[in-house]
Design a protein around this nucleic acid. Structure first.
Lengths: 129, 129
DNA sequence: TTGCCAATTGCAAGCTATTTGCAATTGGAA
DNA sequence: TTCCAATTGCAAATAGCTTGCAATTGGCAA
């Protein structure tokens, strides 16, 4: 956490109370969060500020943006372990998938890959019944 | 194409002229298309009708929905060869990636996978200069 | 420690993309 | 050919994202 705060300061941005709060939510979350989810957890912060804070964090390389299979965009700390996810189409539960194939892709294309999305949707064990 | 028309009819839906036109655009497109792109190609069809047509096609399992790394949602015929894509963050060019890892994922999760997204963004060979 | 100023925030409004209600139109079964 | 439910086009509503601006605040300089 101290580390993250240094990254914000190091970028030249002010460490304001809204920014600190958003950073903490991301830090304590197991899973990537939508803007709405972050805002719900920090009702005292204006939505526009959450939006601009995440935009800043993304620009300084602190958070990544992930589009899940439910079409919702979520955000997570880059420093978190990189994971992909399965979301249940019925109950919305999200499970991590501990696997990633970017290196394989890099071998077969001449593009310089900067971002990738690998997300799944399906029925979780519970909802299959 | 005849085959696709049968799927529409078989679902109980009417084969109207807007639907036929949208189906043809999808059929003749090398790459998945956004709603806007489809509408641009069929200016005589109302946007709402394109929207509802694609929604129908998706519901009857005729088209798949793909969220690219540029956050835009695109649609392609399910019967088309299944492909993933890299989009250039600079010029927007799209390249197919002839690889897919769904079967590997199926082995390591108890979810019943119904949808997946595997999209990349980066710089194409041209834009790397 | 205090004052100051650029950076940041909250509010409200403006986008853009998506979705819906409804009267007019149309495909295709009888 | 007629008829009716399904479908369309139009227009308006909704939702999510983005921005302008006056008020507020973090943190540097005195």
């Amino acid at each position: 956490m101290e580390n993250l705060i240094e990254i914000v300061k190091g970028s030249g941005a002010k460490l304001t109370s809204p920014r600190k709060k958003v950073l903490e939510k991301l830090y304590h979350s197991e899973l990537p969060l939508t803007l709405k989810e972050i805002h719900n957890e920090c009702k005292d912060i204006d939505f526009a500020s959450v939006y601009r804070t995440i935009k800043l964090f993304n620009e300084i390389g602190l958070v990544d943006e992930i589009t899940f299979a439910d079409k919702k965009i979520r955000y997570e700390l880059v420093s978190n372990l990189h994971n992909h996810h399965i979301i249940c189409s019925n109950c919305g539960e999200i499970e991590k998938v501990p696997i990633c194939f970017v290196s394989e892709i890099k071998k077969i294309t001449k593009y310089k890959i900067t971002k990738h999305t690998l997300e799944f949707m399906g029925l979780c064990p519970n909802c299959q019944n």
